[in-house]
Design a protein around this nucleic acid. Sequence first.
DNA 1: CTAAGTACCTGTCCGC
DNA 2: TGCGGACAGGTACTTA
Length: 278
Amino acid sequence: MPELPEVETIRRYLAPVLAGQRIVKTQVLLPRQIAYPAAEDFTARLQDATILHVRRRGKYLLLGLSADLTLIVHLRMTGSLVYEQEAFEPDAHTRVIFLLSSGNALVFRDTRTFGRLYALYPHELAEAKGLAKLGPEPLTPSFTAEALMEQAKRTTIAIKPFLLDQKRVAGLGNIYVDEALFVAGLHPQRRASSLRTEEWQGLKEAIEVVLRAGLADGGTTFRDYRNGSGGQGHHQEHLWVYDREGQPCRRCGTPIQKIVVGGRGTHFCPHCQGEVMP
DNA sequence: CTAAGTACCTGTCCGC
DNA sequence: TGCGGACAGGTACTTA
C-alpha cells in the first residue's frame, strides 16, 4: 500500500501530535508482527518511553524515543498508523495499540499482516533488514541521475523492477514507478542499462514530479491507505496510468495497457512511452 | 554477485 | 448464491 508520499503524509501528521507524549501502555494483539525484539520485550522497552520525533527513510517510519530507542514501523501492503482521539474499540484488523499520556492512542492496523514493527537500540538497527541497504532518498540532494545511471551499468533488468528495488532508490512502489515512467515517456520493459544520459535526467525529474504530486494530494487511497488521522488520500483521482487499464491516456487518448513486468502489474500508455528497444 | 521464484496473509472481485 | 481462482499498494528468503 503505502509508498513514499503516503508514509510521508502520515509522518507529517503524526510528528507534531506525538512529540512529547509518553507511551503509557503497549498492547500487542498479533505478536508475529513484532519483528524485534520478542513481543514481551518490545512492550517492556517501550514502557514509559517518550516520543521525541518522527522521521522517515524510504517507506520506514522512525519514531525517535527517549533512552536511545527507535520504534520502527513498516506498513508493507495494508498497514496503517492512526492517531485515535476518540474512544475506540479494536476492530478485526487492529494489531498493536500504543496508549499515550494524553489519553489518546496510536493504533497500528493491518489487514494482511505483512507490516513489521521494531523497537531497537542503536547497535541493533541492522535488525530492520532493508533499512540499512536503502538507496538514495528522492527529494533530497543525494538523489541524482548520475547515481542511477551508475547503478544501471551492472544490471540487465528492466527499468520497472530496477526502480522498485529499494537499494537503488528508496520509497518508490508499484504506483509511483508506473506514474514516473509515464511522465518520463519510458517503456517499463526497457532495459535499465539502455537509457541514455538525457533519459536518466528526465526520469529522475519525473520521479520527483510524481512523488510531489502524490504528496500534494495526501497520498493515493485505493482501499486500505489512511493518513495519520484516519482520512483518505486523493491522488487516485489524478493518476496518469496506474489502475487505468482500458481508459484513455490523459495525454493522447490511447487506451492504457496493463501487462506484467518483473511479476508486477504494470500500467502504461503504448503511444506515449516509446519502445522496448529504442 | 545478480536474478528469479516463492512465501508470507486476508479480502475482493470475476467468471462459471 | 456459492465457489474456485486470480490478484492486490511490499519485502525477505531460497534457489539457480
